[in-house]
Amino acid sequence: MATTITQPAQPPAGKRASGRSIVLRNVGHTFTDRGGNAVHALADVSLQAQRGELLALVGPSGCGKTTLLELICALQAPQQGTIDSEPAVLMPQRDLLLPWLSAVDNAALALRIAHVPRATARSRAAALFAQLGLDGFEHSHPAELSGGMRQRVAFARTLLSGKPVLCLDEPFGALDAITRAEMQEWLAGALAREPRTTVLVTHDVEEAILLADRVLVLSPRPGRVIGELVVSAPRPRARTDDNVIALRERALELLSRGARS
């Protein structure tokens, strides 16, 4: 597979450094599920993301979104087509924090894996905590944190991997509506301060439009790109902005047409 290994090139300083970060050409993938059935997850997906761009993928459940992220993160090799991506890190829907580590140690996990000494790793993670609205929770254990807090720690862990591409798999899918709205605002702020190329997978069309520079709509399985929406509305965006509402209608229309075809 053609995954370029340009190691932790720190993310581009400017919000929009030029160049392509991710390029997928005609990617198709079939996997075998637990019951031994072949699942045709993706068919002929081509897409690209520019450095620093936030690309959202929306589609019905089971449209191969998670498979797509795993391919970008090089957890699997695609069976058809090619993927060319800067090193990518996955943030799964569930936070998967390690219950025996404090919040700051969970966030510093990637640094510890990279053999950064414990004290240095902790202080680098703690520095990020203030930025992410986590100060005061450094020494809490995951069980003591709310769902939203846990996702913030998981996001800190993702950022501290130092990889230029973030793959967020329904990061707020398990949260209640109010926390979810808060977290969307928080993520927009966090990415404005720490710009990275981001692929956000969600089934929430509104979330995609509020956060993304560009939204790709996927069809039901096998997933194909059936529409692209460029979101040019200025940030911060509100759910009630005319522009946001219009794009949401357009995306829902694409989704339902995809479901019928």
């Binding site: 795993e70 090089a74 990637a110 894996i113």
Partner: peptide, 26 residues
């Protein structure tokens, strides 16, 4: 140990031994 946990550790560049030491052993 969940497969997703191990996948996550792999994207954080953990070796097999590190996945054991950080996740499976505890």
């Amino acid at each position: 140990i969940e497969r997703d946990q191990l996948k996550l550790l792999r994207t954080l560049d953990a070796s097999r031994w590190q996945a054991f030491r950080f996740a499976e052993l505890p």
